[in-house]
């Protein structure tokens, strides 16, 4: 995998670069949220109910400047968005990372082992995939309860099958190539073949899926929060902020929905655009030089 070429192909479209920049900024904001934010929106003692529902640009009773207004509990919306970014990105990345590891392992294993093992593993994957993501997640959360860990588990459950299927397809292609036969005849151990040879060549499609699943995970978490099965209410994620603001929009308190909504939109759109760029980059012929190394 010639990464330099990949990046060059990727950068051909300015939108892809902008998306990458946007996501990087979001990541930085999320990491440094506690430094940038004027208020810790998750600290109940820092809130003042009398400051609830202030419009953007107001100054609260404790002298804080609320750039984007406050919500119905007195939380500074700008701070809540920053902390919410942390949750959205964190949950998506964590579940994505676990999902990739789990799914790729299963997929490559299935492809390598073939026969019965392959059939059983893929049947499980099929069962998982035959289930619409949002229902899958809702049922899991209804059973195991809400909370950060459970949301991550639910998102992993929704995602791993995609990685498994993709990894298996890519691995199958690789397994048909000559160098694998060669490696086998050289008595290279199966683990070595799988990890050092097959895996790197599956990375391309996996990365694309990862970007798409990142977007989907963020969006799914938001939908789950909206439907009421999301995270802790005093530590709202972006989806929960929108859900809270939803009921206030009709009475003119638009800032509770619009701004978190924009943040969510930028996050998801960036991830999707990055996926697009990656897909384009990996397809381009010069990038897909198989690494036999």
């Amino acid at each position: 995998m010639n990464w330099k070429v990949v990046f060059r192909e990727y950068s051909r479209d300015i939108t892809s670069l902008l998306a990458l920049a946007a996501l990087s900024v979001a990541l930085l904001l999320a990491i440094f949220a506690s430094v940038i934010a004027v208020q810790d929106p998750y600290d109940l003692t820092a809130l003042n109910l009398m400051d609830s529902r202030l419009p953007p640009g107001s100054i609260g009773e404790n002298g804080l400047y609320h750039l984007l207004g406050t919500d119905d509990q007195g939380r500074d919306v700008a701070s809540a968005i920053l902390y919410g970014l942390r949750i959205s990105i964190g949950v998506a990345v964590a579940s994505g990372a676990i999902g990739i590891v789990l799914g790729t392992a299963v997929g490559i294993l299935a492809a390598y082992l073939g026969g019965w093992a392959d059939a059983v593993l893929m049947r499980i994957v099929d069962i998982q995939l035959s289930f619409p993501a949002i229902l899958n997640a809702m049922i899991l959360l209804a059973v195991f309860g809400t909370g950060l860990l459970n949301i991550i588990i639910a998102l992993v459950a929704v995602q791993w099958a995609y990685y498994a299927r993709t990894a298996r397809s890519a691995a199958l292609v690789e397994l048909g190539r000559e160098y694998v036969e060669a490696a086998k005849s050289l008595s290279f151990g199966p683990m070595r073949i799988m990890f050092r040879h097959i895996l790197p060549n599956c990375l391309g499609p996996l990365l694309v899926i990862a970007a798409v699943e990142l977007a989907n995970a963020i969006a799914l978490e938001a939908s789950l929060s909206f439907l009421g099965t999301g995270l802790r209410v005093t530590e709202p994620s972006l989806g929960l902020l929108i859900a809270n603001g939803y009921s206030l929009m009709l009475s003119g308190h638009y800032w509770l929905t619009i701004y978190p909504g924009l943040a969510l939109l930028i996050l998801v759109a960036s991830a999707n655009l990055i996926a697009d760029g990656l897909r384009r980059a990996f397809i381009s012929r010069s990038a897909v030089a198989v690494d036999h190394g």
Binding site: A215, S223, F226, I242, T257, G261, L264, L265, V268, N272
Partner: peptide, 10 residues
């Protein structure tokens, strides 16, 4: 991309 990045409920 906007088409499937926009949150449906929003």
């Amino acid at each position: 991309v906007l088409g499937f990045s926009l949150p449906t409920f929003w």
